[in-house]
Each structure stands twice: as C-alpha cells, then as structure tokens.
Simulated scan of single mutants.
Amino acid sequence: MEIRKSNAVKDRIQDLWKNYLLSTAAQDMLLGEVAEHLYVGNLDFKQMAARGDSYVSSAYVETGFADDIGELAYELCHGGEDMAPFSELSDSMTEEEIGDGLFHILVSHIKMYSASDILDNPYYRKVKVKRKTREGHITLTVNDYLPGELIQTYHDGFRKEDPFAYGDAGFFDSRVVFPVLLENGSVWMSVVLSEIESMKEPLEKAKGNVITYGLGLGYYTFMASEKEDVESVTVVELNPHMISLFKNQLLPQFPHQEKIHIVEGNALTYVKNQEDGAFDFGFSDFWGGLEDGLFLYLSFASRTARFRRTIHDYWIENAFIDAYFRPAVMKFLMKKGLGRNVILLDQGKKVRRICEQFIAFLDREPLSVDREEDIYRLLDTKTLVSLVRKFASENVESW
C-alpha cells in the first residue's frame, strides 16, 4: 500500500492520531468502570428522562466519572513518559481541554435504556429460567442489573466523526433480571442487551437452512427459528453438559423446536468438512468475547473463506475490527505516512503479533492513499472486514 505524503494527508493522519489517543483514553476508562460495575443509584432517572437523552447522559457522567476524568486529565498533562503515548495530548491541549474532551466522549457513548428494551424481546417473553439447574460444570440461573448499574452495550458501526470508538455502555432505569450460564462459577454467556444488539444483523440475514456454531442459551437459535423464511437451524456445540441443559430446560419452551437440530462436535472440525451450499447461512458464536475470541474468529474466517454458496457471519466481528484492526491501521498510517513508529494500547504479546502481521499484510496490498477521503475509506468497517477476512484466509496455518 502506498501513501501519498501530501500536507493534507499528513495533517489528517496527525489529527487522527490525536483523536485515537483521546478516544482510547476515554473508552478505556469507560470499560474499566463497566468491569468494576459502576453504580450510580442516586439519580431520578424517570424525572431526568423528561429533559432529554443528552441531559441524562451528561448527568450520569458528571456523577459517576467526574473525579476520574479530572485525575486522568492531570496525569496526561503531568505524567510524562509514564503516560506515553497518551501524554502526547498535552502537546496540543491544555488540562482543561483534555478533561472536556474526555467528558464529551463519555457522554456520547453512554445511554439510558428502559427495562422494556430488553424484556419485550420474544425470547424473554417465551423462555423462562424457572430454577437454578446444573449439568456437570455448567449452571443455568439468573442474574440482575440494578437501575443505574453501568453495563457494556454493542458498538455498531463506523462514524467518520468518531472513528476509533470501540466501546459503548448504558444503564437501565429499573431492575432487570436476565438468564445466565455459568462455567465453573464464572459467567460464560447471558442474554443481555449487548447480546441482543450484536445478533440483530446476523438474524436479519438468516434464511433457508441455517447453521450456527455455539449453543449457549440458544438466543440465536430461538430467534432464527421464529423466522418464517428459516426452514431449519442446525446447532454445532462441543459441550455435552450445555446440550443437556438446553434440551431439558430451554428447548421445550421454543415454539418451533421441530426446526432445531443439535450436533455435538467441534466447530472448527465440523466446518472443515462442511460442504459448500449445504446451508444457506452460517453464524459462528462459540467464543466468550474479545480476549478469547480473536484467534477463534480468525481460525473460523480462514476455514469459511472457501464457501461461495453459504453466506457466513461471525459474532462481534465489528468489535474485533474496532478493538484490534483499526488501531493497527492507525499504527500503519503513522509509520508509512509520518515515519513514526508509535505505541498502541498494550493488548498482550499474542495480539501484538497478529497486529504486526496485519500491518505487514497491509503494506503488501495493492492499495493507495492519495487523499483524506481514502484514509477514512480504509478505516471504514466494511473495508476492514474485507481486508481482515482476506488476511485470515492467507494465513490459515497461523491460527
């Protein structure tokens, strides 16, 4: 890939680097508070809602994040090399400007939801967890969110004005109880807002004979089987305890269980021997999240690349793009366009190796960046999905 080093292109790359630093700092703080189960319970959410979504989000950030924003802005301005590369923001922004920037990014990525946004879902209306049940090391039970408890939601889509967004969050205005699967006492899967939002598009694409890899609580299986244009749903699941729990506790509540066929087996092995066109649509969802999912996603994408008649989708593919591959493009642009070898947010040795491989792949691609618009086209999710899938298919032995 060639980059034309015009002043306009170089200026845009530098602006994007500043945007990357500020956005990553804000969203790292956001997801850190999600992990810590930030709880803002001393606000009257229903009364606040009358003043508009923007007011609600601003009040929530002011109450829950004000101290953290002030502390981080101070550290970015005075922490020196210990805060690199984020301390570079202080070269062009004052401490107050950094704080304001962090505040506005957080406000734009936090939203209040009504309990009905999740409880009105067909799965919730028809499928109930009636009691705590255990099969082997897998437990089916329920959990809850308190009103004002910060949760991660699904970030969907690339926006030019906010190109490095990778984490959205929200909270409910009242208590929500949801089903959950525990593996050895730890949450493996739950039907929560992020799950519902992340499966919306793959469900819209499902038709004819569908295959899905990964069973969990059967949300995708249930919703796909509800569609009139879906004839069958084949589920490949490795864990026999998961299958037993599902068949005994959940499947009997599915209105269209006659469409559902469960195969016990390894998804990677199954798809390797799968005939192209045996199914109309496939959806893989057998990883828990970003950390354990990157290698499985790349492995599966490399194995499904040969399909021409079976359309395939991958759970949270956009999230892999947001978290790993778009930042890698930023690193590539800084090196190729400005001659700077920058440091990204540390994501571990294995992820770093994949990002370096992807950057080398980009350098070999017959593409060019001649104008500012070409940069945004390269960063766009649709472009990156295509590139990452090609990258995965060319490096099948690496996964």
Rank of each mutant, 00 (worst) to 15 (best):
F254G: 03
R326Q: 00
K272T: 15
M48D: 12
S174I: 08
L193E: 03
I69C: 00
F358Y: 04
R326T: 00
S92R: 12
M1L: 07
F158T: 03
Y39M: 03
E291I: 12
G64D: 05
K227H: 11
G148V: 04
F325P: 00
Q27N: 09
R303I: 04
G282D: 05
I211E: 01
G288I: 14
F332R: 00
K272S: 15
L193C: 04
F86R: 08
E204A: 15
I354A: 09
A392Q: 02
I354L: 11
T383C: 08
A25Y: 08
W315T: 03
V40D: 01
S90M: 03
A392W: 01
G99R: 04
R125A: 07
N341A: 11
R309K: 15
I105A: 04
D168I: 06
G293S: 06
E237K: 03
T63C: 08
A35F: 11
I375V: 09
H241D: 08
M112W: 00
E71S: 09
V34A: 07
L31M: 12
Y324M: 10
R309S: 13
H155V: 11
S92P: 11
N395I: 01
I375Y: 10
D120H: 08
E231C: 13
P252H: 06
L298E: 04
V127M: 10
F391R: 05
A278S: 14
G339A: 02
F361T: 00
V329H: 01
E201W: 13
P147S: 02
D280I: 11
D67N: 10
D67L: 05
G167C: 09
Y55I: 05
M29R: 02
E264V: 04
A8R: 14
L150P: 02
A206H: 10
K5V: 03
V177C: 07
G265A: 00
F281L: 12
N341I: 07
S54F: 14
D82F: 14
G101D: 01
R326P: 02
K5D: 02
A73K: 05
S90D: 06
F325Q: 02
I260F: 11
V233I: 02
I354Y: 10
E317Q: 13
A59Y: 09
L72G: 08
T94K: 01
V177A: 06
K128N: 10
L203T: 15
T269M: 13
E201P: 12
S54H: 14
D168S: 15
R364P: 13
V127D: 12
L76Y: 07
I69A: 01
E149I: 06
E291G: 15
D374C: 01
K46F: 07
A319G: 14
N395E: 02
S186I: 12
I321D: 00
G41Q: 00
L296C: 14
I196A: 09
P85W: 09
R308F: 03
Y74R: 06
E373M: 12
V34Q: 06
A328N: 00
R175Q: 07
R340V: 10
L106K: 05
G348C: 01
E226Q: 15
R308G: 12
V385D: 03
V210E: 02
S174Y: 06
A115V: 11
E197D: 10
T153Q: 05
R51D: 12
M223Q: 15
K128W: 04
S194M: 05
P163C: 07
D162L: 11
G70T: 08
F246T: 01
H104F: 11
V9Q: 06
Y55A: 07
G216D: 07
V177N: 09
T133F: 03
L251H: 09
